[in-house]
Design a binder for these strands. Structure first.
Lengths: 239, 239
DNA sequence: CAGTGGTCTAGACCACGGG
DNA sequence: CCGTGGTCTAGACCACTGC
């Protein structure tokens, strides 16, 4: 994959920050100096610095410079779109995915509305339980329009469906809306999860869009209360 | 407040989208055309379009154009930093804030660590219950270092502390880390909230930073399970 | 093929912070 | 005052889309 110049500069600076070449609370060289050092224009340096800022590695302060942030203080921004596989790898836990359902069918009215489909469209319906350290903690219900995802197998579902869509199918996930609420546990939750005494689950509804604005996935992720954690790293935007 | 050119263009385009001048699923004029129309350079137009994209108003598609998104489909992105006051106004509900505690004190060890303070620093400790439609739903516990927020009154707490910090104190909130977990209700929750049968609360921990990277506020917002809702609009970033 | 958005350049002026 | 990051310009080339 061809990288742009500013992405390369971002990667270099990012590495230098993470290996301690630039220490927390110290300042990066100025944009002019970086432009000279990398033999590029200042606007290109600025794009790289904006990426660093968006990812929580530096803080730009007008008329003073770019301060390296202390990564340990914020942990790692697990904000935005994160798949179960990435998450469990990051947490370094033993994990397993159990596929309970995998079928093509005509969805119920509610799912049809969520996916904005016509009456006779087929969807893939996948139900998976996620086990971490021997406990079944998360129940995932996914719906994909068959038009966009013609083939889906058990082994794909046991790994990452994201990976499959992005790498094998060549689809580009562009943005997603997430909604987090708490609801009473339903039949599936009781059946497929180790809920212990808990009567409620945290429900994360995820609407995933491609870069041509079509909705390609609706997912409901149901978490046992005590194991749920969501981290958001928000930068105050202008206006 | 002096606005930049690209912010003005953002505002104009944003209005045109919201009043229907540009219809959902249609395309905006090309960047070259917009540059001519606004009598500016293309890079400036691109900054405005990037803002529109970040705010979920358009979707840029390479080699095709910028598509106007359907606002109703996503509701409004209530993502990122939102204060209780903004929220209740947006939801158009009758709401009230009850201040239970407002004192300067030496914080417990845990809060001192959260705020990264020295042993003898004083903090403001504020406890507020939030009532919506006659039910006490949210318990807010706020901690501010006295060094940064010398004065705080009951009436400020009944309105928005954010407003006070940003407008009256002239502090610029730059970014925030949010953590969402579910915990068992504690004594304060039972005392100050109408919890009904619920034994747990959704806890939103908020760490607020100024643009010089100092941590200026730690807030714990405790919500009754059934009334909690969090919406996140995430755009997949490059690399 | 022409038109699009993505990247990049080499300048420029500005507001602001600190010495 | 000088150096900083923020904004802005008028060009340029590229890869990609759709016709």
């Amino acid at each position: 994959m061809k990288q742009t110049k500013y992405q390369q500069i971002y990667n270099e600076l990012s590495s230098s920050i993470q290996d301690g070449t630039y220490k927390p609370n110290s300042k990066l060289p100025s944009e002019h100096e970086l432009a000279d050092a990398f033999g590029t224009s200042r606007e290109t340096i600025r794009k790289a610095l904006n990426l660093l800022s968006q990812n929580g590695l530096i803080q730009k302060i007008k008329a003073r410079g770019s301060v390296v942030l202390d990564l340990n203080r914020y942990e790692f921004p697990v904000s935005g779109l994160v798949s179960f596989k990435e998450l469990s790898e990051k947490m370094n836990r033993s994990s397993r995915t159990i596929v309970h359902q995998l079928e093509k069918k005509i969805p119920c009215k509610w799912v049809r509305e969520q996916l904005d489909l016509s009456d006779d469209s087929l969807v893939w319906h996948v139900v998976r339980a996620r086990e971490i350290d021997g406990e079944r903690i998360i129940l995932d219900r996914d719906y994909f329009p068959v038009d966009y995802v013609p083939e889906l197998t058990k082994s794909i579902c046991e790994n990452s469906i994201y990976d499959y869509l992005e790498n094998d199918m060549g689809l580009t996930v562009s943005y997603a809306k997430k909604e987090i609420v708490v609801e009473e546990a339903d039949e599936d939750d009781l059946l497929y999860l180790d809920l212990n005494e808990y009567k409620h689950v945290v429900v994360v509804r995820n609407y995933v869009y491609l870069n041509d604005t079509t909705l390609i996935e609706y997912t409901e992720s149901r978490h046992r209360l005590d194991k749920f954690r969501f981290v958001d790293f928000a930068r105050r935007e202008k206006q």
